[in-house]
Amino acid sequence: MVKEIERAGIPVVHMCTIVPISKTVGANRIVPTIAIPHPLGNPALPADEEKALRRKLVEKALKALTTEIEGQTVFE
């Protein structure tokens, strides 16, 4: 899906936990996330900290979308 969206000319960032799979499917902008069942959260944290964590990750994704890249890039 990532590749087809990219192919259509829309910049796309893939947020996922298993980065090697993301690379294999051909994502170009990749942001690693927390865990498989909760990529953008951490139920062990209090609600406000969890949201702050999610915001940080989404901001990273937005940064990836505004960064020119040559090939597959992981935004750690």
């Binding site: 899906m1 990532v2 590749k3 087809e4 969206i5 192919r7 259509a8 000319g9 829309i10 910049p11 796309v12 960032v13 893939h14 947020m15 996922c16 936990t17 298993i18 799979i21 993301s22 994502a27 996330t33 498989i36 069942p37 990529p39 953008l40 989404v58 994704a61 979308l65």
Partner: peptide, 26 residues
Amino acid sequence: NAAKFGQAIAADLKAAGVDAVILTST
């Protein structure tokens, strides 16, 4: 199937004038 979904979604997004996508996976 994933490629087919991706193409259909992309066409719809383009028609709606979307500039960028955040795609999340578990």
